[in-house]
């Protein structure tokens, strides 16, 4: 499985995502490469990560400028063809801005940036990224953001819930930002596009305190080979 990790001006966690893809694939540098925001040819890539950071400085609105990049047009085509796309933090914001995922990310309830290790509960969503995880399983993943409050108007929220598009919720007492229904991550209707505010790429090495994030990166390969957790 070869991953492409998008790189915009202002991306911060693209190397961390590369690292996570490589570890998930069992090591070796050929399992992931950076994709410059001006690239449009994603051939040879089996999965895409839209990484965290502050693309374009988060100016105007988080993710609002990056969505117009040539690479994101290619990612939309890639997703429409069923390719797995993972948006983390700023990447989640970009995917929402692009309309590839439902909802929006607003400024945290307390308005401050917050960085903390937290617990997530795996949702019912049917997604290749969740193949290695069980519904209701609790995993420990750090989050760090200032605009991570998931919001959807009531009708859309109902649809997200009834379609089982919730991939992760903050565990009770762990919602750091006031997200509606404690939602930390959602998928598109097809399940192949996942966005989440917490950072699974920062939970792949033992020294960081948790390796629970690995399963998310390993999911698509497991799915492709018909494996299950």
């Amino acid at each position: 499985m070869t991953w492409g990790v998008l790189q915009f001006p202002g991306s911060c966690d693209e190397r961390d995502a590369l690292n996570a893809c490589q570890i998930a694939g069992g090591g070796g540098p050929d399992q992931a490469r950076l994709v410059w925001h001006e690239e449009t040819d994603l051939s040879g890539l089996d999965g895409i990560v839209v990484p965290g950071g502050f693309s374009y400085g988060d100016y105007l609105r988080a993710g609002a400028i990056a969505r117009f990049s040539p690479a994101m047009t290619a990612v939309a085509d890639f997703a429409a063809a069923g390719g797995p796309v993972l948006g983390i933090c700023n990447g989640f914001q970009v995917l929402c801005e692009s309309g590839l995922l439902p909802g929006a990310l607003l400024t945290n309830e307390r308005t401050r940036f917050i960085c903390r290790q937290g617990d997530l509960v795996v949702g019912e969503a049917d997604s290749p990224f969740l193949t290695g995880l069980e519904a209701d399983q609790t995993i420990s993943i750090p989050f760090k953001h200032q605009s991570g409050r998931f919001f959807a108007p009531p009708e859309l929220l109902d649809r997200i819930e009834s379609n089982n598009q919730v991939a992760f919720r903050y565990a009770p007492g762990h919602n750091p930002n006031g997200s509606v229904n404690d939602i930390a991550g959602v998928t598109n209707e097809a399940g192949n596009v996942l966005g989440l505010m917490p950072h699974p790429e920062h939970a792949v090495e033992a020294f960081s305190g948790s390796t629970d994030g690995l399963a998310i990166f390993q999911g698509p390969a497991l799915t492709a080979t018909g494996g299950a957790a």
Partner: peptide, 10 residues
């Protein structure tokens, strides 16, 4: 300290 990203860079 929680207002600072302490983990980016892995």
């Amino acid at each position: 300290f929680e207002q600072y990203d302490s983990i980016v860079g892995s």
